[in-house]
Design a protein around this nucleic acid. Structure first.
Length: 404
RNA sequence: GUGGGUGUAGCUCAGUCGGUUAGAGCGCCAGAUUGUGGCUCUGGAGGUCGCCGGUUCGAUUCCGGUCAUCCACCCCA
């Protein structure tokens, strides 16, 4: 038997309904915030991710589905969504056009990891990217939008937030951090010793207990921000407070992707196991420039659909649709015609086989239909159809021509 | 990449200290006076006991390998 590849899942009942409900809910909210739908290719040139996500990241270093295509091009399945949207933004010269551009997207992402709860090799994200808006109020608004989405889906969360500074304050901080890290170098794990050279900021969120103990006296990023970054960060925190958003400061929150500047945040849930980040994002003012575009401030986020699937509370849906069946084979053509007519306005189930009334009712019930309409011997003779409302139990018999 | 758990009916799981026809609940199908769903009762269908190999007179059961899956580390949404 051929089965789906490791870490890849079919989205079937009951998840399929939650999946589409989630997407339509999130999309509707994004639209209200002025975002427009965008779709970008699943396959991109590998260098796009090397330059945006960062070669030092695990995602690019060891988790990409990367291969050489028949034309000899180094390509890979996208491991995340932001890079492709930024590429699209630049390629279409939207950076030169100026103004504000806001996009939302959703679709599959691919990372070659060991699967576990909340972590698949093919998984789905819903994300938003806002280009051209420098104001920290945009950072806040995007967080507010995520709140609206999770509230609409009935999902609880807390927010972890940090500021990673900007080109003005980050280099100075990085330098003092590296100095400190070199002092404690011998006590750090192998990974961290390597990170001092490649990406010292990442040492901060090392999960190794002994590293964390040594890091206690290391300089704190939020205490070393430049005036602008500090002011913005405080504005953001004040806004979060005044809107009752449950957040906690986390100076060790370093987004795993290299392109973030200033605001970095993560929405976490305590109900879903070790992979607790259900959404993450932040500001990435430098990324457009890194990818050869005109410097453009940007902020965005992505949420992991599979991670929140079990948390979504979907509104109860009652019986819906019409079930059509017959007890006399001669009536089948009428059923087919009627179904076609009815489908212009509602959901219709048709049964092609001759069945007892009891079997029809049972089938209609199981399908969740609201009405069960049957043509039997008597009805066929009189050009009528028998209809029962499965909820109110009301029954009636009317002329087929008048059934509409 | 590392560690641990699990693979028996469509689903959730029992069970076999190695021995004839491998079980339950749910689900499915059919009946319970002829054309009335959900509840109840009765009956029925459905399983190469993940796969390969070893030990044995004999393996679903023991051993090894393999694959899959789950959980955790790591990583991240």
């Amino acid at each position: 038997m051929i089965q789906a590849l490791r870490g890849m899942k079919d989205i079937i009942a009951p998840d399929n309904e939650i999946f589409t409900y989630l997407l339509s809910t999130a999309s509707a909210i994004a639209e209200r915030y002025g975002y427009e739908y965008i779709e970008t290719p699943l396959l991109e040139e590998t260098s796009l991710f090397k330059r945006s996500v960062g070669e030092s990241s695990d995602i690019v270093g060891k988790e990409m589905y990367q291969f050489i295509d028949k034309g000899g091009h180094d390509v890979c399945l996208r491991p995340e969504g932001t890079a492709g949207v930024v590429r699209m933004f630049i390629q279409n010269k939207l950076d030169k056009r100026g103004g504000i551009h806001r996009f939302y997207y959703h679709g599959p992402m691919f990372r070659y990891e060991r699967p576990q709860k909340g972590r698949l090799r093919e998984f789905h994200q819903f994300g938003c990217e806002s280009f051209g808006e420098e104001s920290v109020y945009e950072d806040f608004t995007i967080i507010l939008m995520i709140k609206d989405i999770f509230d609409a889906l009935g999902i609880g969360y807390t927010i972890k937030i940090n500021s990673l500074g900007c080109p003005e304050c980050m280099p100075g901080y990085r330098e003092s951090l590296v100095t400190h890290l070199n002092d404690i170098r011998d006590g750090l794990c192998d990974d961290c010793q390597r990170r001092i050279a490649t990406n010292p900021i990442r040492v901060l969120d090392c999960k190794n207990g002994s590293c964390q103990a040594l890091l206690e006296r290391s300089p704190v990023i939020t205490e070393n921000l430049c005036e602008t970054c500090d002011k913005d960060f405080n504005t953001l925190l004040t806004l979060l407070e005044s809107h009752d958003l449950p957040f906690e400061l986390d100076p060790k929150l370093v987004r795993g992707l290299d392109y973030y500047t200033r605001t970095a945040f993560e929405f976490v849930s305590s109900e879903i196991g070790a992979q607790s980040a259900i959404a993450g994002g932040g500001r990435y003012n430098r990324l457009v420039e890194f990818l050869d575009g005109k410097p453009t401030p940007a902020v965005g986020f992505a949420l992991g659909i599979e991670r929140i699937l079990d948390l979504v509370k979907i509104p109860e849906r009652g019986r819906n649709g019409l079930y059509l069946g017959m007890m006399e084979p001669d009536a089948l053509p009428m059923i087919i015609d009627l179904a076609h007519r009815k489908r212009k306005v509602q959901k219709v189930f048709t049964e092609y086989g001759k069945k007892s009334l009891k079997a029809h009712l049972k089938a209609a019930d199981r399908l969740g239909a609201r009405e069960c309409a049957i043509i039997g011997e008597d009805e066929l003779k009189n050009g009528e159809i028998w209809i029962k409302d499965l909820e109110t139990k009301e029954e009636k018999r009317i002329a087929i021509s008048e059934f509409d």
